[in-house]
């Protein structure tokens, strides 16, 4: 017996895919967005990277502590302290400095590889997405300076056009003591 694929008798392009397929598609789109973002950083397209953030974004990297059991907290909140707590204007300053040609930390430029994995996505009320992932960023600088940054990220992604923009990002760096001369990189 031969089976034939069902023929389409109408145009399905405007229809939502079946629920399972929609989740798969969304997962794929978010992962591709993150891969493209990582590539922008690694290829030093910092202005392109900046454009991935909404104008009302918040980029937060809290400070992690070694604490016992229930005492564990990440230092957050209005009077907390963070490695980074930036709005878009501050991110723009960081980008301008990076591309100035006068930022000695990045002259000559380091070589960076941002690896993104363990991506999980869910849709929030109102249509924005909550996207979590793990990352590892390698930075190779000059002749023998190799530094590795690991952690997780929690983003709020907003659908813009056919893609996404980052409306909020929190980077949970694993380090309590940053084992690098600086955090002069985008995560």
């Amino acid at each position: 017996m031969t089976t034939t694929l069902p023929t389409q008798d109408h145009d399905t392009r405007d229809e939502a895919p079946p629920p399972g397929m929609a989740a798969l598609l969304l997962q794929h789109q978010v992962e591709q967005f993150y891969y493209a973002e990582a590539r922008m950083i690694d290829e030093r397209d910092f202005h392109g990277w900046l454009d991935l953030f909404t104008d009302d974004t918040r980029y937060l990297v809290p400070i992690h502590r070694n604490q016992t059991g229930a005492e564990f907290t990440d230092e957050l909140g209005d009077l907390g302290l963070a490695h980074f707590d930036d709005d878009k204007s501050v991110l723009r300053k960081r980008v301008l400095r990076m591309v100035s040609g006068l930022a000695w930390t990045e002259d000559p430029p380091s070589v960076q590889r941002h690896l993104v994995t363990n991506v999980q996505v869910r849709t929030l009320e109102g249509g924005e997405l909550a996207a979590d992932c793990c990352f590892q960023a390698h930075r190779y600088r000059l002749d023998r300076e190799v530094e590795v940054f690991t952690g997780s990220r929690s983003d709020v992604l907003r659908r813009v056009g056919g893609s996404f923009r980052i409306a909020a990002r929190t980077v949970y760096l694993d380090h309590t003591t940053v084992l690098a001369n600086n955090l002069n990189l985008f995560l």
């Binding site: 400070i63 502590r65 907390g80 302290l81 963070a82 003591t177 690098a180 001369n181």
Partner: peptide, 11 residues
């Protein structure tokens, strides 16, 4: 004091 201590390595 805002938050706690912030630490990093300088080679």
């Amino acid at each position: 004091l805002m938050g706690g201590v912030n630490k990093w390595v300088i080679k």
